[in-house]
Write a protein that binds this DNA or RNA. Structure first.
Lengths: 312, 312
DNA sequence: GCATGCTAATTGTCCTGGACATTTATGTCA
DNA sequence: TGACATAAATGTCCAGGACAATTAGCATGC
C-alpha cells in the first residue's frame, strides 16, 4: 500500500492526509493546483505522498480557517507564523485572570495521570456544582487545551483522553439528577458530519439541573430522523451542537430545512463554536454562541410559554 | 443548494448520499458507470440527484457488503431481495431460543419510551451483572436492532437512542467499580474512521470487573498517537474495536504498522464485527471476533505473564 | 460618515473518463 | 487435494474543466 521506500509511514497518501487534516481530497488537490501548497511528492505510481511537516501545516491552517480566516492568505505563511496567529487569538481571548485551574489541569493531562485527572475533574465539579463547572471551568479548559495542542505542547491522544474523562465526569454528574419527567422536553443531537458530542453533554448539564427533560440521540443524526424523533418524543425544543470545524454552509442549509419540517411550535436551538461564524440570520432558529445563552434561552422559552398560557 | 424543484429535500445531492450510505462519492459514481446503478437524476446544473428509495437500496447493499457480500451481485437485486438476504442471515444466527429479552427491548424502543428503556436496561444490568449483561444480552439486542432497522421496522433515530442509552447504562455500571489501579493496563480506542465507540465500552465492561485498568481514548485516535499513548500510559495491552463497516484493508494495514511501532512486549488486540472478515493472519495481533474472547484473552495474557515470571 | 448595492476575486464541490493496484474467483497442473 | 497462474471484479487516484456560492472591495447615494 504505502509504497514508501522506508519502513514506517513517514509519508502519507492522500486518504491519510484527508483523515489527518479534515480537508477533503478535492480541496487538497485544488490547493495544490491553485496555491502550489501543499506540494506532495509522488510515488512510482504518480500518487501524492504528503510529508509529515506538510500535514502539520495543513492542520494548522485548517484550525485557523475554523475560526474564520481565509485559506488564500494562510497558505503563504510559515508554520511559525500560523502558530503565532493562533497564539494571538489566545491572548485576545483569555488571560485576563492569569494562570488558573485550567492550567493545572493541562499540566495533569501532560503528566499522563489519568486517575489524577479524573479526580481533579470530579473534584472541581463537586466544588463548583455542575452548572458553574460547565460554564466557568470547561470552556477555558477546552480553549487552553486546543491552543496547547496547536502549539505542539499537547498530543492528540492527550486531547482525546481529556475529552473522554470530561464526558465521564459530566455524564456521572448529570445522572445524579432525577430524570423521570420534566419540562420542557429537549431533544439534543448533532447533524451528520458533526462527530463532537461534548457540546451535547454540556447543554444537558446546564438544562437538566433547571428541571428540563433532555433526550440525547448522540451525534450524527440524519435531518429526517431529527424531525421524526422530535415528533415521536414530543420534543418542545430541538437543540443542535456544532463544533468550530463544521461548515457554516451545511449548517445553515440544514437548519433552514429542519425549521421548515418541524412544527412551528417546536423551538430550534443551535449552539457551539460554529455559530459565531454565521452571518445570515436564520428565521425561527435561535443561535446560542455562548454557553450561558442556553440558560437564557431556557428562561426565555419559559417566559414565553407562561405569557402564551396567560394570553389564551 | 438543493435546487430541487419542490420544497423539502426528497432528492439528495451526492454529498448527502455519501453521508447516508457510507459509500464514497467515488464509489457512487463508479457503480453508476459500471453497473448502471444507482442512476440518479440530474439537476439543471448536471449534478446528481439521488431519490430516497435509491438511497435506501444503497444502504441495504452497504450493509450486506459489510458482512462480506460482493456489490456486483447485490446491485442487481431488488430491495426486497436484499432484505430477504439480510433476514436469512438473522435466522442462521440467532433464533435458537425464541423471542426473549431483546424482543421486549426493541418493542420498548419502538414505543419511544426513553425513560422506560433506560430503566429496562438498568434493570437487566443489575439482575444479570455487568459481564453477563454484556456477553448475553447486548449482542443479540444489537443484532435484533440492526435487523429491525434493515427491515424498516426501526428508524435511525431509534437506533441512536438505543446506543446512547446503552452507553449511559454501561458507563454507569463501569464507574461503580473502583478504578484506581489494576493490572494489566489496557489502552482502548479505535482507528481513525471508526466512529463507533460502543465496542470500547463493552470491552471495558468485561475487563474492569476482572481487575484490569482500562484507559479509553474514545474513538478515532491516529495511529501515531495510539503508539504514543501506549508508551505514555505504560499500557500492557492495546485494544482496538472495529465495527462491521470498517474496511478490512485499512484495518490490516494499520494493525501491521502499529504492531511494528509498538514494543513487542505490548499485546495488540483487535475486536469487533470486522475481525470476522479478516483472512490474512496478522503476526503479533490477537483477533477477537467473539466478545467472550476478550475474557479468554485476558486469562491467556495473565497465564503467560505468570509463566514468564516463573521462568525468569 | 455610514448604509447599500454592485462587481470582482476567492473558494469549494461536482463532473468526466482514464489508469492502475489489489483482491477474489477460476482454472490448471502436479 | 493443494499450489500457482490467470482473469474478473472492485476501489482509489489523477487531471483539468466548469460552475455556484461566498466574501471583499469599491462606488454611489443619503
Amino acid at each position: 500500500m504505502n509504497a514508501s521506500p522506508d519502513a514506517s509511514g513517514v509519508l502519507l497518501d492522500i486518504s491519510s492526509a484527508e483523515r489527518e487534516t479534515g480537508l477533503s481530497k478535492d480541496v487538497l488537490r485544488m490547493w495544490e493546483r491553485r496555491y502550489g501548497f501543499p506540494k506532495p511528492g509522488r510515488d512510482d505510481n504518480g500518487e501524492r505522498q504528503y510529508a509529515v511537516p506538510e500535514v502539520a501545516k495543513l492542520r494548522a491552517i485548517k484550525r485557523l480557517m475554523d475560526v474564520g480566516m481565509r485559506p488564500g492568505k494562510l497558505v503563504r505563511c510559515t508554520i511559525e507564523e500560523l502558530n503565532a496567529l493562533g497564539d494571538r487569538r489566545v491572548e485576545r481571548h483569555g488571560d485576563e485572570a492569569g494562570p488558573t485551574v485550567e492550567h493545572d489541569l493541562v499540566a495533569l493531562l501532560r503528566s499522563h495521570d489519568a486517575v489524577g485527572l479524573q479526580n481533579a475533574l470530579a473534584n472541581g465539579l463537586m466544588r463548583q456544582g455542575l452548572q458553574r463547572f460547565v460554564l466557568e471551568t470547561v470552556p477555558p479548559l477546552n480553549r487552553a487545551i486546543g491552543e496547547a495542542w496547536m502549539r505542539g505542547e499537547l498530543q492528540i491522544f492527550e486531547e482525546h483522553l481529556h475529552t473522554e474523562q470530561l464526558k465521564v465526569a459530566l455524564r456521572t454528574a448529570i445522572n445524579a439528577f432525577p430524570r423521570q419527567s420534566g419540562s420542557p422536553r429537549v431533544l439534543a443531537t448533532t447533524f451528520p458530519g458533526e462527530q463532537h458530542g461534548l457540546g451535547l453533554l454540556m447543554v444537558e448539564a446546564l438544562l437538566v439541573p433547571e428541571g428540563a427533560h433532555c433526550i440525547s440521540l448522540g451525534v450524527q443524526t440524519p435531518l429526517e430522523d431529527i424531525r421524526r424523533a422530535a415528533l415521536a418524543h414530543r420534543a418542545e425544543i430541538v437543540a443542535l451542537s456544532f463544533s468550530a470545524a463544521f461548515p457554516v454552509r451545511q449548517a445553515s442549509e440544514g437548519l433552514a430545512t429542519l425549521r421548515r419540517q418541524l412544527p412551528p411550535a417546536v423551538a430550534l436551538w443551535a449552539g457551539g463554536e460554529m455559530t459565531r461564524r454565521v452571518r445570515r440570520t436564520l428565521p425561527g432558529v435561535l443561535l446560542i454562541p455562548e454557553l450561558a445563552g442556553a440558560l437564557a434561552a431556557l428562561g426565555g422559552w419559559r417566559a414565553q410559554q407562561a405569557a402564551a398560557g396567560v394570553a389564551t
